[in-house]
Computed example of a mutant assay.
Amino acid sequence: MLKKKITIALLLIVLFSFFSCKEDVFPKPSSYLRLDYPEAKYVNFENQCPFSFEMNSEAVIKGEKDCGFTISYPKMKATIYLNYKPVNHNIDKLLRDAQKLTYEHVIKADNILEQPFLNSSKKVFGMFYRVNGNAATNSQFYATDSIKHFVTGSVYFYAKPNFDSIMPATSFVRSDMQRLMETLEWK
């Protein structure tokens, strides 16, 4: 009887070891979310205000008071806010306010890159700010002719500012905002 039990136990061990052997397990490669955005097509935006610019034809623009505009990207839950102010011997204050607005994000930002902008033929001078990190805004700019006109712009996403997650959308909207600044013309 003991011999029979030992034989059955050995047979079960052999069966279990035979059926338990599988191929080696390898970790799966990391996957990434693929976000494809259409190639931007730009159109000139003319208005009654003392400036014009080019904007993405897919964006939705809405006029606000005092020549301010909101340019929305509904699919990305993003909005560019444009504000216009006339210069009345207060260029220093306008510049300080624009810079202060950008540097209020330094608490959450990893760094802020300044990119000066100069278009002498159109008399457009300014600064484009690229804010990296989990700040509320990732791009801002101001543009002026130093005599009559001053425009500021900033982009905000209606999502938690997790820089890694919204990186493709921020890059897309940032390039549109930069194009807007570079095509700005005074009337």
Rank of each mutant, 00 (worst) to 15 (best):
M1L: 09
M1N: 08
L2I: 06
I6K: 12
I6P: 03
T7C: 09
A9K: 07
A9N: 08
L10A: 15
L11F: 15
L11S: 15
L11I: 15
L12V: 15
V14F: 13
F18I: 14
F18R: 11
F18N: 12
S20V: 02
C21L: 12
K22A: 13
D24R: 13
V25M: 09
V25G: 00
F26K: 14
P27I: 04
P27A: 07
P29D: 07
S30E: 10
S31H: 06
Y32C: 05
R34F: 13
L35E: 13
E39H: 09
A40T: 14
V43L: 11
N44A: 08
F45W: 10
N47G: 05
Q48L: 11
F51Y: 15
S52M: 06
I61G: 03
I61V: 13
I61T: 13
I61R: 13
K62E: 14
G63I: 02
E64G: 14
E64H: 07
C67I: 07
T70W: 08
Y73Q: 00
Y73V: 01
M76H: 00
A78S: 08
Y81S: 10
Y81K: 08
L82H: 03
N83E: 10
K85S: 13
K85Y: 07
P86S: 10
N88H: 00
H89F: 04
I91Y: 05
I91W: 01
D92I: 02
L94P: 02
L94D: 07
L94C: 08
L95P: 00
L95D: 01
A98T: 05
Q99C: 01
L101G: 04
H105M: 06
I107Y: 09
A109C: 09
D110P: 02
D110S: 15
N111A: 13
N111W: 14
L113V: 13
P116D: 06
S120L: 08
S121N: 05
K122M: 00
V124T: 09
V124R: 02
V124L: 04
F128C: 02
Y129K: 08
Y129F: 15
R130N: 14
R130E: 14
R130V: 12
V131E: 02
G133R: 09
G133W: 08
N134R: 05
N134Q: 06
N138Q: 13
Q140F: 07
F141A: 05
Y142A: 08
T144S: 12
S146E: 12
I147R: 12
H149W: 02
H149Q: 10
F150V: 04
F150R: 02
T152N: 04
G153I: 03
V155W: 04
V155D: 09
A159Q: 15
K160S: 14
N162E: 14
D164P: 01
I166L: 06
T170P: 00
V173K: 00
R174G: 06
R174V: 03
R179I: 06
L180T: 01
L180S: 01
M181W: 03
E182N: 10
L184G: 02
E185N: 10
W186P: 04
